[in-house]
Design a protein around this nucleic acid. Sequence first.
DNA 1: CTGTCATTTTAATAATTGTTTAATAATTGA
DNA 2: TCAATTATTAAACAATTATTAAAATGACAG
Lengths: 102, 102
Amino acid sequence: MESVHVVKALQALAQPTRLAIYRLLVVSGPDGMAAGQLAEKLGVSPANMSHHFKTLSHAALILSRQDGRFVYYSANFTVMNGMLAYLTENCCDGNPGACAGL
Amino acid sequence: MESVHVVKALQALAQPTRLAIYRLLVVSGPDGMAAGQLAEKLGVSPANMSHHFKTLSHAALILSRQDGRFVYYSANFTVMNGMLAYLTENCCDGNPGACAGL
DNA sequence: CTGTCATTTTAATAATTGTTTAATAATTGA
DNA sequence: TCAATTATTAAACAATTATTAAAATGACAG
């Protein structure tokens, strides 16, 4: 994963509403949740949610699929994995250190 | 780790220079690196670096210690661990899913 | 002390981001 | 087709963030 994509993913998650959206989608797994369901659960207006979905989608952190009138969003675990790996790469230059557990 | 701290940590890392700083500090381990050394390595002005150090410190992602005229910064692995755990908590509601590997 | 080096702070400006309101699409059922 | 529902887009404004230049702090050597 390249630096510029990691920055984009971090930016996308670095906002309270979007972090909450993402966490709900992590819990809901591959099936995901409908846009309106998320909006209601978080008490955020649909328009505002839509902007946040766009930001998260653009960072490839979430996926969407249409089902009738509903749009279901779900977490893209592959990108999250890549981001986490990037953050801890080459920890302590390969030697054991205070980073134990990473 | 609380949501508000996670957002702060993500915000701190969601910037190319700060992400680069953090990664260099992850590699350099507990000893860390001097402020000026990092500035030179990244080609960023000392004043600008200082602002970024402040942001990262305020998010508790890095630690600092003074040694003579030099200030050494190092990665705070505990906070990174907390952040990573927060992001993947309750994945797929505890059931096996597409999140395999997280 | 005085001068120099390493870093931080302050102040100013430019750029980005988040929220709101209103308008627009797409889908469904009567 | 018409109205209702679900979601997105566009435009505007307020708020936050990043960068720069200049001044200030703190540490050490002579």
